[in-house]
Design a protein around this nucleic acid. Structure first.
Length: 419
DNA sequence: TCTGGGGTCCTAGGACCC
DNA sequence: TCTGGGGTCCTAGGACCC
């Protein structure tokens, strides 16, 4: 087997600079929702020492002093740019597996002439067609392709190929174990306690022993580092197993109405996605919590509300979620975040075919028609043109973004103007 | 007084990823 | 004043059954 991992460099920050050439060479960062913390940094911002996940309020002054360009996140732009990058990658090889918004594995198995020049030609094409810089790592397993990709970035190179044994060993010996795909904070502490410091140390372990001590995931990791393919296709499944919508609030909220409004809004959005996928949910998980960062009385709770029959009906899902909220809500807490997860998803078509004695087919048909109309109106006139009444109860939970860039590629009004 | 063994299913929580 | 959001997978442990 042979895989390439193509990974965009500082993706969100690169999307911003693609449309603002004057920012090239300057530090650029992108903030999370609510302008809460740093989620993307250009190379220059990393060199300044700005950490991933740093709370923005702690570095605001530092950014001003160092002329860091700061952006709120603009997912309409990033999602669209991602599609362009993926389409370009797909034009270079027969099979790609999109793994995340900014990464894809290219299956090179059986291809001849896999050389540095070939890899660089892909990097150059993506840069030319989309303006986004990427790096490519190539190796016999996906885990090693990840290593190669990271190595390319650390060396400041466009590409890194791990095709022969001596190169593999050489790179793994210099590669810190905590950088390996699948090794997080907890695991790296345990591994280091066992004297495992480099990726090479990990690769030297007996997979069976590793499985006993940890799990099958870590066993696969060891095998993959040795060139044995264990991980299957990493294509994000076309239909999700759960759909989640959650937000931190702009400011803490105490009122039941504000939480109701937030929960209703989240259900509406998630139900839209559910219908897009042609799925129905059998239950909805509702949760609320206070901020763990604040010195206030802490409370967090969640509950799973089963639906009578699986559905994608916004109104039924909203009612279920609000019932759940009523069950877990406690007064006098400073709630900071809420969310819902649609779970136990299955195909709507299959469910339609399985009516029970108590279902009224005409009523189900009528409600499905209502949802179709709702989706069409919102598509035509903009998201949330039509919404449920509870969404409007009290929208004081909504967050604020102060550094948004225009949606250059998805809104006519925001199109870039050349002079 | 003595109190098995094996299987399945479900859920909560942890860990990890980007 | 101010600390993101959306996923997946795995395990342990309890409930339940025979």
């Amino acid at each position: 087997m042979l895989f390439a991992l193509a990974d965009c460099n500082s993706f969100y920050a690169s999307c911003e600079t693609a449309f603002k050439p004057f920012l090239r060479g300057r530090p650029v960062i992108v903030l999370s929702n609510n302008d809460g913390c740093v989620v993307a940094r250009s190379r220059e911002a990393k060199q300044l020492g700005i950490a991933m996940g740093a709370p923005f309020f702690q570095i605001r002054e530092f950014c001003r002093a160092n002329r860091v360009a700061v952006f709120s996140s603009n997912y309409a732009l990033y999602g669209d740019m991602s599609q362009r990058v993926m389409q370009t990658l797909a034009s270079t090889v027969p099979e790609i597996e999109q793994y995340s918004i900014d990464e894809a594995f290219l299956n090179l198995t059986g291809m001849r002439n896999v050389t540095t020049a070939f890899a660089e030609s892909i990097v150059d094409r993506v840069k030319l067609w989309t303006g986004i810089p990427i790096s490519i790592g190539i190796a016999p397993t996906r885990t090693l392709a990840k290593v190669a990709n990271r190595q390319a970035k650390m060396d400041g190179m466009k590409t890194c190929l791990l095709l022969d044994e001596s190169k593999r060993i050489d790179v793994l010996k210099r590669f810190p174990v905590e950088e390996v795909w699948g090794v997080g904070r907890q695991l790296s502490v345990k591994l280091e306690r066992m004297g495992i410091q480099s990726a090479f140390d990990l690769a030297q372990q007996d997979p069976v022993q590793i499985r006993k001590r940890f799990t099958v995931i870590q066993e696969a990791m060891v095998r993959e580092l040795n060139g044995e393919t264990c991980l299957g296709n990493q294509q994000s499944p076309p239909t999700a197993k759960s759909i989640q919508t959650s937000r931190s609030f702009g400011k803490p909220r105490y009122e039941f109405d504000a939480l109701s409004s937030a929960i209703s809004t989240f259900v509406s959005r998630a139900a839209e996605k559910l219908r897009e996928q042609g799925q129905v949910a059998r239950a909805v998980d509702v949760y609320i919590r206070t901020s763990p960062f604040r010195p206030v009385a802490q409370y967090s709770a969640s509950t799973v509300v089963p639906l009578g029959r699986p559905t994608s009906d916004t109104l039924l899902l909203t009612q279920a979620a609000l019932d759940g909220l009523a069950k877990i809500f406690q007064p006098n807490y400073a709630y900071q975040k809420a969310g819902i997860i649609l779970i136990d998803l299955s195909s709507a078509a299959v469910n339609r075919a399985q009516l029970t004695f108590f279902d009224d087919p005409e009523e189900l048909e009528r409600r499905a028609g209502l949802m179709k109309t709702l989706d069409r109106l919102n598509e035509k006139f903009g998201r949330s043109s039509v919404m449920t009444g509870t969404q409007l109860l009290d929208d004081s939970w909504k967050s604020v973004q102060q550094n948004s860039s225009p949606r250059y590629t998805t809104e006519w009004d925001d199109l870039l103007v050349a002079k």
